[in-house]
């Protein structure tokens, strides 16, 4: 049985040090502020600095990982004698996954002896991170690449993403939203609650009055949908709003006795679209 490497990308919002611990390799999407030349990856800029820039009116554009980049990264792994299991950022939000798929096709011809499996997780941020995390655990338990892939494939339609943003303007600007709920723009105090659907698209589900209500309604969704509310796992990611993370974690603990396993920063490549104040909750349910 040959060995394999789990590969992800920077849209999973898991810290590089943690990914290294898990033995996961990644490639990075990039971003650039309007009117600036310099291109960054998530690790090049502190999230606080990034969101302060956004709050000050900065607009960031993101770039997907291209085929060439994946081809180089994947081939390095193959050349070391390992197979590749790539878990990728939702194709509903980025062309990154497609780049990986094309790179994989090319490399399969060049290295027919090696396995390259790519999975479109249809997930984002720490929800995507949770799929990576659970696949790593499976691998640690001795799962083959096929078994780990099957797990990830089976998990992705049950990986619930529920989140709220401070202002829909960012999602609208990036064209990253489908209006399931007719949303009144600019109404002060109204907070949208969104989720990610089975196609990996962001859907506006309902609106509430006030941030506090929005935070509480994320917890309500957990109570309603979590497969095993007492056991978790629970991940939360946030765009510079740690107080709300604490509040949400507190509610979950009080209601279900469950601890949040990972609190992640929403990195710039996601945050450029969702904006400062994004608060997202991830867990495994029976369905999304």
């Amino acid at each position: 049985m040959s060995n394999y490497v789990i590969f992800a990308d920077s849209a999973c919002d898991i810290k590089p040090s943690v990914l290294a611990e898990w033995g996961v390799k990644t490639a990075s999407l990039t971003f650039r502020f309007d009117g600036e030349e310099k291109e960054y990856s998530n690790n090049d800029m502190d999230t606080k600095v990034f969101y302060d820039k956004m709050r000050a009116g900065g607009t960031a554009k993101t770039s997907a990982i291209n085929v060439e980049r994946f081809a180089i990264e994947f081939e390095n792994v193959l050349l070391e004698g390992n197979d590749v299991l790539y878990l990728g950022f939702s194709s509903g939000l980025s062309t990154t996954y497609n780049s990986a798929r094309l790179a994989a096709e090319r490399l399969r011809e060049k290295h027919p002896e090696r396995k390259i499996i790519t999975i479109d997780t249809l997930s984002a941020s720490a929800g995507f991170g949770m799929i990576v995390y659970l696949a790593v655990k499976e691998k640690e338990k001795g799962a083959t690449i096929e078994q780990a892939a099957t797990l990830a494939e089976g998990l992705k339609m049950r990986l619930c993403h529920w989140f709220t943003v401070d202002d829909l303007v960012y999602l609208k600007r990036g064209g990253r939203i489908s209006p399931a709920v007719a949303f009144v723009g600019g109404v002060l105090g109204i907070k949208p609650v969104l989720h990610m659907d089975n196609e990996g698209h962001l859907i506006n589900m309902f609106k509430v009055r006030g941030r506090k209500t929005a935070v509480a309604s994320l917890a309500d969704k957990y109570s309603e949908l979590a497969e095993n509310a007492e056991a978790g796992p629970v991940f939360i990611s946030h765009a510079d709003c740690i107080k709300d993370v604490e509040e949400l974690a507190d509610i979950l603990k009080k209601k279900h006795g469950v601890e949040v396993e990972i609190v992640a920063d929403v990195g710039p490549v996601i945050g450029a679209h969702s904006g400062p104040g994004t608060l997202a909750l991830f867990f495994v349910g029976k369905e999304r």
Binding site: V181, A182, V184, V187, G189, I190, F206, K207, V208, R209
Partner: peptide, 10 residues
């Protein structure tokens, strides 16, 4: 104002 903005007219 609060009432209207709370309602889901869908």
């Amino acid at each position: 104002y609060v009432a209207i903005s709370s309602a889901d007219f869908e």
